[in-house]
Design a protein around this nucleic acid. Structure first.
Lengths: 151, 151
DNA sequence: ATGAGTGCAAATAGTTTGCAAGCTG
DNA sequence: CAGCTTGCAAACTATTTGCACTCAT
């Protein structure tokens, strides 16, 4: 993720917030910048830790994440255990990931099923269609560690 | 889901349980039968309500679901809100669904991304690969209802 | 000064765990 | 009768909500 793309995203978020009557507070700016430094989806807790948001309430993080989601710039990524990660995205884009179930390292997958999926869903009479697709595994690093643990 | 397939699944579950030292209790039998009557993934609560498991503890439901999962005969289906549904499957099979986010009605999708997904994951050095893919929407019926509600 | 944003505390909800008691094989 | 299974109560965790206070516009 280059500088350009980051600052572009930043500006887009601000623009959309203002359009919706939102404000740009100090906390929100820091939170947004923290989000931009991730090259993978991150948990609310991780996002707070990053940057100097440590003395912010997690509630604030969640509320801002929700706000970003509402303006179509944030994607929730479900994990196998029912919790979720969050990732800033270009407007109304979304991605699929290969996620290590240990360290949460994630890479974007080069795979999109939107067309097939939306087609089938519409054929069944569904509207407001959304979908998730995530791949979980153990990355090479974590596999080594877990092997050690059980040795 | 025909009788044959159901009873076949039933027998397979029992066989695998016994192999693993498990027992066939009354509750477990009822729970299993309840699961078989669903033609879609269902929540733990729904599963308890079905059949006469009302006076069983939800804990028991969860523990049995876990047991069935451990013998490779149950799939967890994540919802958008972080909760999950459960579905009996043939050994180590899994399915993808089109789920109504209101009534939880679900249909199996005719779509499998396993090969593409596993290929990419292995190329990245991952092991123990699993994946989820679920499609959410509003079914025709629920769309009508929600339109009424906001009218 | 209006109302969006924040913090604190407390509530939720789904799910899991500990332990004593009850069954199954 | 050994130990898998169950129930009850309580813990947990991520997330959400209520309300008073603060800050951006």
């Amino acid at each position: 993720m280059t500088e350009d793309i980051s600052s572009q995203l930043f500006d887009t978020v601000i623009g959309r917030l203002k359009t919706g009557g939102g404000r740009m507070t100090k906390k929100r700016k820091v939170l947004l910048n923290a989000l931009l430094t991730f090259d993978r989806p991150a948990s609310a807790e991780e996002i707070r830790e990053r940057a100097d948001l440590n003395q912010s309430d997690l509630v604030t993080v969640y509320r801002n994440l929700e706000t970003f989601e509402n303006i179509g710039m944030l994607q929730r990524v479900p994990l196998e255990n029912g919790t979720q990660l969050f990732e800033l995205t270009a407007p109304n884009e979304h991605y699929h990931h290969l996620i290590c179930r240990e360290c949460h390292k994630a890479e974007r997958l080069d795979l999109c099923v939107s067309k097939a999926v939306i087609g089938q869903a519409e054929a069944h009479g569904y509207t407001q269609i959304a979908h998730i697709m995530e791949v979980y595994g153990l990355c090479g690093k974590c596999e080594g560690i877990s092997r050690q643990a059980y040795a």
